[in-house]
Simulated assay, not measured.
Amino acid sequence: MPSATPLYDVRGRGFARRAPVTEAWAWIDDRIVPPPARSLPLVECAGLRLAEAVMALGDWPPADRAAVDGYAVAAADTLGAGSYNPVPLTAAVAVTAGDPLPPGCDAVVPFEAAQAVGPFVEAIDAVAPGSGVERQAAWTRAGSQLLPAGRRLRPGDLGLLAAAGWGAGYGAGYGMVPVLPAPRVRILLAGGPKAGAPEQLGAMLAALVGRDGGAVEAVEDRTADLDALAEAFAQPGADLILSAGRTGTGPDDVAPVALAQAGSLDLHGIAMRPGGSAGLGLAGGVPVLLLPGEPMAALAAYELLAGRAVRRAAGLPAGLPHAATEVVTARKLVSEIGSVDLHRVRLDDDGRVEPAASPVWPGLAAAARADGFVLIPAESEGVPDGVPVTMYGFA
């Protein structure tokens, strides 16, 4: 049980300094690495990263096969065939797509290009050698690379692996694939009068963690008191902990104190807006990221800090996962020197960007209205209208 006496208390004192965002990124990169690889059944691998390249176990297709339903033939037997000159096929074999070609056949006449006359089949269209055929090893040869290391597995990838012999069924011999398991992320809602509704923050953060390759272990309401939050930080089981709310320096801001009590508060106060009261530390060796409770600040701190931590833990690229587009500002984006500003923006009818927030669209309404965000560096006083900027778009 943690002591009721805080080991570290910033309440009422303000921030001694605000660490640059790059310093917070270095802290994350130095302490968070992907978990060891595991071999999992194919049906459990969707969305996970391949730990190593997967090689083809054999040729695919394993032999020449029909690509369409029809009659397997020797193409030479169809020479001269047409609708006014049907040509009898003495060695036609009915096949469906995927069937191996019978010996002596090198093409498939589709059913619509043939007609049955009693027990006989006639071609009413000529075909060339290879027509209607999928050649052996057309997709991959034995020993070649099917998918590279680091690939995030999509449903189509799982189908390819199953077809290529990595998972042929649901019983004995079911394929196992080497993957990086999703990091277990615990979300703690620290509450407080500055926070949004707990279900609001919990739903947003859980969705963001899933986007970035994490698996939410639990979403817990820990608004009771300092010791309850410290106990939650110290509880084992998670690979990463995100806490939302009570991150400032006011009398009710217990999150940084609780983290210091449970382990270490390494950085508190980041030179970014919104979200500048974010913090980082360790509890039982597990990285903990403190996010503000105000929803827009929590979203910004997640995008710039916590998201990077989740992606690194999942074996994904650490950088922002959004598509970057060059756009032009329609209105000035206001900033001040000393902090990285995350401006949520929307595209106007001319394809230019303007701030999404306004007195009419505050908070989460502005977030829902935004098409993306623009990052203004700490050394900038803002961006005037008519200037090119990079927008990180929302999918």
Score class of each variant (00 low, 15 high):
S335K: 03
V257K: 01
I187E: 00
D64P: 08
E112W: 12
A230W: 01
L229F: 01
A56P: 13
D341C: 08
A26W: 03
G80M: 10
F373G: 04
A149V: 12
A366D: 07
A92P: 09
A172Y: 10
G250I: 00
D350R: 10
V374Q: 02
E122P: 00
A74I: 01
A306Y: 02
F120A: 12
P355Y: 12
Q115I: 13
P35S: 12
I124M: 02
R273M: 15
A366Y: 09
L101H: 05
D371F: 13
A324Y: 04
E379N: 09
L40H: 08
G245K: 04
G70R: 00
P321W: 02
A271L: 08
L189T: 02
R31W: 02
G159M: 13
P88L: 07
Q136C: 08
A365H: 12
L333K: 03
D371Y: 10
A163L: 14
G293P: 07
A366C: 09
A195S: 15
E122L: 12
L226A: 11
G319Q: 10
G285W: 02
G363K: 08
P88Q: 08
A366Q: 07
G351I: 12
Y84E: 15
Y71P: 01
H268V: 11
D69W: 01
P384Y: 10
M176S: 10
T329W: 00
G156Q: 14
L289T: 03
L205W: 02
I376M: 02
A206E: 13
G281V: 06
R222N: 02
A395D: 15
G47T: 09
Y84D: 15
A324P: 12
H268C: 08
A314P: 04
A258M: 02
A234H: 05
